[in-house]
């Protein structure tokens, strides 16, 4: 196959996967209910944190930690959405709709297809994140003056972070291909661990030292630190204060690249094993 044909096939796979992902996510109801559904969950998640603060602070949100928590939690919406959005496709297509085997029969690029299916979830997460942030600024009074936001850092960090999450999703998709009856837990376990270890809703410094080191090895930690520095001017993590902002992006880019290589290699290996063991059309009825 020539590079041109391969390129066309990759583009077509991506386009169709994005469209299909959007249909699967949204066509179960009318647009209004879908919009409400997409927004209510993340806003409720953010409000849990707000009330936790209010209860302790007896009505005040002036604690300098609050913007840290709120911004981290808002962007964490992407973590669950992208990770689960990509890895869940394997379960949905294989177990629920019984379509995964046809994906392998069709002339498409399966990696691009999986990443494309995650795009719909990413789009929904983008809206939810934006609304959560607007709610924080408009209703809760979090100070994010547009003039002081480092838009360049925000854009680059966002792209790099989402790419890292997408490759993590691919890694999980590979693991999901090989597992039976545990695939529901894989995404949740990884997302839960990232929530705890990446300093999403509290500074890394609060964690025991051993867990701080685990947190420092995760790309999501640097992603959130970069996003906070872009929006709030400071990251809030004492443990990462020594890293200049100029070094954060290369760290994030390097870890994303490493993750990309590992994910693709692992997925291809998992795919081969699944093929040999006849797991591509496995039905566990769970």
């Amino acid at each position: 196959m020539t590079a041109r044909v391969r390129g066309k096939e990759t583009w077509r796979s991506l386009r169709v996967a994005v469209w299909l992902g959007w249909q699967v996510e949204s066509n179960w109801t009318d647009p209004f209910l879908f919009a409400v559904y997409s927004v209510v969950r993340p806003v409720a998640g953010a409000l849990i944190l707000v009330f936790m603060y209010l209860v302790v602070a007896r009505g005040g949100l002036e604690n300098p930690l609050f913007p840290y928590v709120f911004v981290g939690n808002a962007f964490y919406i992407y973590v669950g959405a992208v990770l689960m959005g990509i890895s869940w496709v394997v379960i949905d297509d294989r177990e629920h709709y019984g379509m995964l085997k046809y994906m392998y029969v069709a002339p498409l690029n399966i990696l691009t297809y999986l990443l494309g299916r995650g795009v719909a979830q990413t789009a929904i997460a983008t809206i939810a994140t934006a609304i959560t942030l607007l709610f924080g600024v408009g209703v809760l009074g979090i100070r994010i003056p547009p003039g002081q936001v480092d838009w360049g850092l925000l854009a680059v960090a966002l792209v790099l972070g989402l790419s890292a999450l997408a490759f993590m999703g691919l890694l999980l998709a590979g693991a999901t291909l090989l597992t039976a009856r545990h695939n529901f837990f894989i995404g949740q376990a990884v997302a839960g661990a990232l929530y705890l270890l990446s300093g999403v809703v509290f500074p890394l410094d609060v964690l025991p030292p051993a867990l701080q080191w685990v947190g420092k090895a995760l790309p999501v930690t640097y992603w959130l630190e970069a996003l906070r520095r872009a929006l709030l001017g400071e990251g809030g993590n004492e443990a990462l204060r020594a890293i200049p902002t100029g070094h954060l992006l290369p760290i994030l880019a390097g870890s994303t690249l490493a993750l990309a290589v590992v994910s693709i290699l692992f997925f291809r290996w998992a795919e081969g094993v699944a093929h040999c063991r006849g797991l591509l059309d496995m039905q566990t009825m769970y």
Binding site: L49, M52, V69, A189, Y195, F202
Partner: peptide, 25 residues
């Protein structure tokens, strides 16, 4: 399954406990 179903909520619980600790509750 039991391991997962105990550990997963515990991750969330731990995160919320650390939030309360961070704000001095």
């Amino acid at each position: 399954w039991m391991l997962f179903e105990v550990l997963l909520p515990l991750l969330q619980v731990a995160a919320f406990v650390y939030i309360y600790q961070a704000i001095g509750a």
